[in-house]
Structure formats: C-alpha cells, structure tokens
C-alpha cells in the first residue's frame, strides 16, 4: 500500500511539475542589445514557442527599420536625399512615420527622429561608436536648415520632404514599438503574465503569481541598480542615458543622445527614467518620451513632463542630483547605502 501511495504521490508531483507556477526565461540579441523575455504561468514548451515568435518578429523589425543598413527606412532616406516622392506600400510603415511626426509635434521637437544625419556625424551609425568629435562647421550646416520630422509629408501612400537634411532614424522609437508588437503576440497566444526587456525598455504584463514584476534601475555611473520599482500590470518603463552608447574625448563624455536644437550631445544629465501606465501606445511612449526629459535643460524638465502627462519620472543630473516626481517617489525603493541627493517635484 505504501508503495502504491508513493507511486500515486510521484505521479501527482509529476503532474504538478507541469503546472503553471514557473517563470521561463529566454534571451536573444536583437536591436544591438539583449532582449530578455520572462513568461510566468506557462509550460516551458509554450513559453519557449511564444518567446521565439517574439524574437523572430523583433529580428524582422530590426532589419525593416534599420537606420543605416539597407532597410525600408534607408530607402525612404535615399528618396528624401534625392528630393523625390517615395511610395510606401506598407500601411504599418505609414502609420509608424505618422506616429513619429505626431510625437515630434507633441514633444515640441525634443523627440526628433529626423536627425539621423547628426547621429551619423557623431559616429553613432555604427555598431561600435566612433571616437571623434565632428567638425563644428558640419554640425552648423545641418542646424542652419534644421531637419524637422514635421517636414516629412505623407499624401496617401507617398512620402516626401523638401529638406535634404532630413534622415529618419527610428532608434528612439523602435524598441518601444517592438514592445507594443510583443504585447500583441503574447495576447494572441493567451499569455497574460510576462516581462519583456529590450535593452532596458521594459513592459510588464500581468504579474508573477501574486507579486508584481519588479525591475532594478541601473545607476548611470555604477554597475549596479540604485533603485527598484514594482511595475503594475501594463506599465512600461524606459530610460534615456549617456552610459550605454557614448565615447569620451578629452575627458568629456559624448553620448548618442543629441540635442536636436544644438546638434551636440547634452552634458547636464546622466539619465532620465519614465514609467507610462497602460494606455494607447504606452509602450512606445515609454521609449520615446524619456528623450525629451533627458535632453531638455534642468529648468524645463518638470514643465515638459507635466505637458507630456508623464507622472512617473526619475532624472539623474550630471552633478548626481536626483529629480523625482511625487508619484515615482511613492513607488520607488532605494537600494544601496550611499547617500542620495533627492528632490521631489
């Protein structure tokens, strides 16, 4: 009888082993960064299958929107350069471009995906960033007739711009858009609990059991997280910082985030982290809207955040001072023993 009991117990244990209490993690390297997908409450087989669907979609998106290799975007840029109409035969791409124009307008030009030429000039259109400060005259040439995303005109499916300085670079948009697509794939496969991290841009779907997903926020000058935060279902978090893609010349740091109005990387801010609760396009907004908050001068940041309806922000200025919104401050958990200079707004 004991033996029978044991057999039944082991069988039950085996069945429970197939149950849905586990987190399955898969990783891939896409968009020039690590993509990390954690899925809770699914069999490993199903989680692996859906993760691969997402990875395949991301690989496609990366190739399709690539800013400097041959892609749908580089083809558009070639047409703009030659001042000719470009026929976009993909409604999704038209929507993406229109979305970028709209975001340019709503951020008053602080998010400007038309500055690909500036990004290239600074050496960031390369897997390994260049190490040279560009010639000031070349920057001035571009800024004299500044490329503006609202100078991109779409009529029906035809795109054109009369400003040859425009070169579209969706580097500040693509990861957020990829998160949005990943969410659709997960929903289509009836997966409601997942955490998707594309190089630091994170979308939390559902929870892990009874607990919220929790993410650490990396310190821009140290290799550790200085804070953590629980993400409620549907929240997306994004950071713009000067510590992932940059070079140092004459002891000065130059990051890939370039002020579209001056043509130079900013030196007043180390990082800007924002959280966007679930709403239309929130995954995209968590990627895009961290740029204006990062790039704008200190005195304008809070006003801009309010105008853009960003209730959750955490900014580290160059002097180490932390600017945090009241809402973010309610949810943040500070890590480490180091004293922090925090101001709540």
């Amino acid at each position: 009888m004991n033996y029978l009991n044991n057999v039944v117990l082991i069988f039950l244990l085996f069945l429970m082993g197939c149950s849905d209490n586990q987190i399955t993690q898969n990783k891939d390297y896409i968009f020039g960064t690590i993509v990390d997908i954690k899925i809770y409450g699914e069999t490993k087989q199903n989680a692996d299958h859906v993760s691969n669907l997402i990875f395949n979609d991301f690989h496609h998106l990366h190739t399709y929107l690539h800013p400097w290799k041959t892609s749908a975007i580089s083809n558009i840029n070639e047409s703009i350069k030659q001042n000719r109409w470009h026929d976009i035969d993909d409604p999704e791409l038209i929507q993406i471009i229109q979305d970028n124009v709209q975001l340019y307008k709503s951020t008053k030009g602080w998010f400007n995906p038309a500055i690909g030429k500036l990004v290239q000039l600074w050496g960031f259109h390369s897997d390994v960033p260049g190490q040279k400060i560009p010639n000031g005259a070349d920057i001035l040439d571009l800024i004299k007739n500044p490329p503006k995303m609202n100078q991109v005109i779409i009529e029906n499916s035809m795109l054109r711009s009369e400003n040859p300085n425009i070169q579209i670079d969706l580097g500040g948009y693509a990861k957020g858009y990829a998160l949005k697509r990943a969410k659709k794939i997960l929903e289509a496969n009836q997966i409601s609990n997942a955490l998707i991290n594309i190089g630091g841009n994170i979308l939390a779907m559902g929870k892990k059991g009874k607990q919220f997903w929790k993410v650490g926020i990396q310190h821009p000058r140290e290799n550790i997280a200085f804070a953590s935060i629980e993400l409620k279902p549907g929240w997306s978090i994004g950071t713009s910082g000067d510590y992932q893609r940059y070079f140092i010349s004459n002891n000065k740091r130059y990051s890939h985030l370039i002020n579209p109005f001056t043509g130079y990387p900013v030196d007043h801010t180390q990082s800007a982290t924002i959280i966007i609760p679930p709403k239309e396009n929130s995954e995209v907004l968590s990627d895009v809207l961290s740029k204006p908050i990062y790039l704008s001068p200190k005195e304008d940041k809070v006003k801009l955040a309010n105008q853009l309806q960003i209730n959750y922000f955490l900014i580290i200025l160059e002097n180490g001072e932390i600017m945090i919104s009241q809402e973010m401050n309610k949810h943040i958990e500070w890590l480490g023993d180091k004293e922090k200079n925090v101001k709540i707004y």
Binding site: I23, D36, W213, G216
Partner: peptide, 11 residues
C-alpha cells in the same frame, strides 16, 4: 527569496 532584488534591469 521573495525579495530577489528584481526580475529585470532597466538601463
């Protein structure tokens, strides 16, 4: 533990 510091890192 429950307090595994976090599930993922934002950077």
């Amino acid at each position: 533990g429950k307090n595994k510091p976090y599930d993922s890192t934002n950077y």
